[in-house]
Amino acid sequence: MSIQHFRVALIPFFAAFCLPVFAHPETLVKVKDAEDQLGARVGYIELDLNSGKILESFRPEERFPMMSTFKVLLCGAVLSRVDAGQEQLGRRIHYSQNDLVEYSPVTEKHLTDGMTVRELCSAAITMSDNTAANLLLTTIGGPKELTAFLHNMGDHVTRLDRWEPELNEAIPNDERDTTMPAAMATTLRKLLTGELLTLASRQQLIDWMEADKVAGPLLRSALPAGWFIADKSGAGERGSRGIIAALGPDGKPSRIVVIYTTGSQATMDERNRQIAEIGASLIKHW
């Protein structure tokens, strides 16, 4: 067993022997301040990774656009098919120029040779490549099948209805392509620590998230040296922004954090800054 596999296998073990965790309302004060600064709703939840206990939450059962955070769930569904012998990570998928959609920095470079399922998941999570996500959605049967996968996990809230990039439209009061912070946090925890996926697939999923290259201005910008984070960000229309993450000190994750916002007129930089400040408060009061 590799060191990384050992780390993920012992996530519940280490967490069980940690000192009790206590909620700190100071972080919620910052979440509410972010709402004021952005002029928009902000949803927040913080779960203990081992027990699933909610440590703090704000608007945990209000719907927010998922945006690209759905790509972690998508690759979880792909990995479940791999575990069941219905898919192979090494299978190569070929596609054409007509398949390319807006923001496809990886797939646009491989029109000639195609990409493997493993490479597509890596591109979808680490670079948020939209064509990679659409190609992977095709392998599982489309958005409705991802929703069905989530329902089978016990998540009857999260739903995907459309493809990239239309799913980022974020129309107010439109339930399409949305989740709730509580539902997303619980589902992410199941994917990373539950028995739904094999140990190898859980490790692969967290490795992809740990290698995320496009979430630097968010929670990662607030992390002290030595902290662990595996995350996936999302951005959408109407001032929408979000991030889902597993993080913790001492090089291992111990909490799940989900943050979503929508309806702001603020710039992307300002949305990023507010999420980073929430992260800084979380870490300060850990």
Rank of each mutant, 00 (worst) to 15 (best):
D161R: 03
S128T: 01
A215D: 00
Y103P: 08
E166Q: 11
T187A: 11
G216C: 13
A185S: 07
K213G: 05
G216K: 13
K190F: 15
F149E: 10
P143G: 11
L196N: 10
Q265V: 11
R118G: 10
L160M: 08
T178W: 02
G142T: 09
A148V: 07
T147Y: 03
H285Q: 15
E26A: 12
T261P: 03
L218I: 05
V117Y: 04
E46R: 04
I243T: 04
T126Y: 04
V257K: 00
A200G: 13
Q37D: 06
A235K: 03
V29R: 10
E237T: 12
F228Q: 07
D113G: 10
E56T: 10
L191C: 12
R220A: 04
T116C: 15
S80M: 09
A276C: 07
K252Q: 07
V72Q: 03
L191N: 03
E119W: 02
Y95H: 05
T187E: 04
L73Y: 12
D113W: 06
A266H: 10
R176Y: 10
D269R: 12
G154R: 13
S68C: 03
L192P: 00
I229C: 10
V31D: 00
D231G: 04
L188N: 02
V106S: 15
L111H: 12
I171E: 15
T107I: 05
R91H: 08
D129M: 01
T193Q: 13
V78M: 08
P60D: 13
D250G: 06
D161A: 08
I283N: 04
G194V: 06
V101K: 11
A225Y: 06
T179W: 00
R271V: 12
A183V: 12
R238C: 11
Q274H: 11
K144R: 08
E35Y: 02
L136F: 00
L111W: 07
N130M: 01
T116H: 04
E56N: 10
G239T: 03
W227F: 06
E169C: 14
A185P: 00
H156R: 07
L146C: 06
E145T: 09
K32T: 13
D161I: 05
G226L: 07
N98D: 07
G248D: 02
F228R: 07
G239V: 01
P165N: 09
R118W: 13
I243F: 10
D161K: 03
I244M: 14
I206H: 08
E102D: 08
A170N: 07
E35N: 04
I93F: 09
L196P: 10
A170E: 08
I229Q: 01
L223T: 13
Y44C: 01
E35G: 05
V31I: 09
G279C: 15
R63H: 08
I45S: 15
A84T: 12
M268K: 14
E56A: 06
T112I: 14
K190T: 15
R273K: 14
K109S: 08
V72W: 04
K190M: 14
Y95R: 00
L49W: 13
I45D: 00
A183H: 14
